[in-house]
């Protein structure tokens, strides 16, 4: 092979690898991403039951009920609409009523959100980005307000 041919082989090989990788990435992106909704977006956009999604909002005061064993139910609100969430598992340390929370899971036929993962803010200043944004849009939360 001449110098030029060798170089072409390599470049083509590289492009082939890149192409395959790009294909895998696109496939993975279309299959694995989860959309983020607030309770009012869920009611507005008619999310179909069974679709995996992330739900973000504040845990409504007085709504957290511990069930049998490690079951818990609580209500997530964006101060406009609310949605009931059930979760079987251990809630994070910083899960509190009135605080921000993000739950991942599906909506069942009855309109209840069945979560398999619940994230609470990691520290005093942490608020999931998506949640902060949508709460800001609705004018109920701002970065400046850190009451401690």
């Amino acid at each position: 092979m001449t110098r030029k041919q060798k170089r072409m082989t390599m470049i083509l090989g590289g492009l082939a690898v890149l192409g395959i990788a790009a294909g895998i990435m696109l496939y993975a992106l279309s299959g694995t991403i989860t959309f983020f909704y607030t309770p009012s977006e869920i009611t507005e956009e008619k999310v179909s039951p069974g679709q995996r999604l992330r739900l973000g909002g504040l845990v409504e005061e007085g709504s957290w009920i511990r069930g049998e064993g490690t079951m818990s139910t609580f209500v997530v609100t964006d101060t406009i609409k609310t949605i009931k969430v059930t979760y079987n598992g251990q809630l994070p340390d910083l899960f509190r009523e009135g605080q921000g929370v993000v739950a991942e899971g599906i909506i069942d036929g009855g309109g209840t959100f069945v979560a398999d993962t619940v994230l609470a803010k990691h520290d005093e200043n942490y608020m999931p980005k998506e949640l902060a944004d949508s709460l800001k849009e609705k004018g109920v939360w701002n970065e400046g307000a850190k009451t401690q």
Binding site: I24, A28, L29, T32, I33, F35
Partner: peptide
């Protein structure tokens, strides 16, 4: 303006 999250499944798959 759409909000999504890309989690471990994507990374494991790619």
């Amino acid at each position: 303006g759409e909000k999504i999250s890309v989690g471990p499944p994507y990374f494991n798959l790619t």
